[in-house]
Write a protein that binds this DNA or RNA. Structure first.
Length: 253
DNA sequence: ATGGTTGGCTTCCAA
């Protein structure tokens, strides 16, 4: 089974990219973030025609997550327990006896800001949920835009980014705590080197200069990590006209 | 060099 994640930064703008990418990458499951659509405007017909079932949780203007699947989708959850949050940032579902948890983790804006505090609180509540889900689902995938670069090797210029939002110690520590309950970063099962990123700022020709961060992740429970065959960051769509600032990450399990 | 770009229903906010 091929499972992918992609922050599309507006599904309205990126629908053609998504449909083209589905044809070449042929994923079985795709987790989308930043759809930026209310549910009434979700392009169900186009995605169904491409051969995918779909569930989504959207809002006006910001955020929004969706799950596409070639297989039946069940037991959908769209909230983090014990978290009052109008922002649509999580979508959990079961597909082929694999529990999939799609995340759009808050960006955090800047270290110490209200949004940063919200991000850390969100991660803390999420961690309790993940821990609970692991007890019920040995085959668990947590994937999406985490808005955290786990280590310096995931940052193009660690010195310049030191202490900044997306790389700060508190954020990395929160991610480590989340993963300490038995989750592994699929990309690092295969690739130890620096220089591999999933997001590049639109500004300052960052993609051309490979000035990026690896902030989109696929975390696998032990049962899935041991059988994972491959984890790829597909930079192809970033070369297309009017691209998202993120590219897809995919695993084969 | 405190810049630069993109998306949204916008005259700024979020990323």
């Amino acid at each position: 089974m091929i499972i992918a994640t992609w922050n599309v930064n507006s599904l309205r703008v990126r629908l053609e990219h998504l449909l083209n990418w589905l044809l070449t990458a042929k994923p079985d499951v795709v987790a989308l973030q930043e759809t930026k659509l209310i549910d009434a405007d979700f392009p169900v017909a186009e995605i169904t025609a491409a051969g995918y079932q779909v569930v989504f949780s959207g809002q006006k203007t910001y955020n929004g997550v969706a799950l596409l699947s070639r297989f039946p989708i069940s037991d959908v959850v769209t909230t983090v327990p014990n978290l009052e949050d109008p922002q649509r940032r999580i979508l959990a579902a079961t597909i082929n006896n694999v529990r999939i948890i799609n995340l759009y983790v808050p960006n955090g804006s800047s270290v110490g800001s209200d949004k940063y505090i919200y991000k850390l609180d969100w991660l803390e509540k999420l961690t309790a949920f993940i821990q609970q889900q692991l007890t019920q689902h040995p085959q668990l995938v947590v994937l999406g835009d985490f808005n955290i670069a786990p280590e310096d090797r995931d940052v193009h210029d660690p010195k310049a980014w030191e202490g900044n939002v997306l790389v700060s110690e508190q954020e990395r520590s929160a991610l480590n705590t989340l993963m300490a309950h038995g989750l592994q970063d699929a990309f690092r099962l295969f690739e130890p080197a620096a220089g591999h990123y999933s997001w590049w700022d639109y500004r300052a020709a960052a993609f051309r200069r490979n000035m990026g961060l690896r902030i989109d992740h696929i975390l696998l429970s032990t049962a899935l990590a041991v059988q994972c065959k491959e984890c790829i960051i597909d930079k192809t769509p970033r070369g297309w006209e009017r691209p998202s600032d993120h590219v897809p990450v995919m695993v084969k399990i």
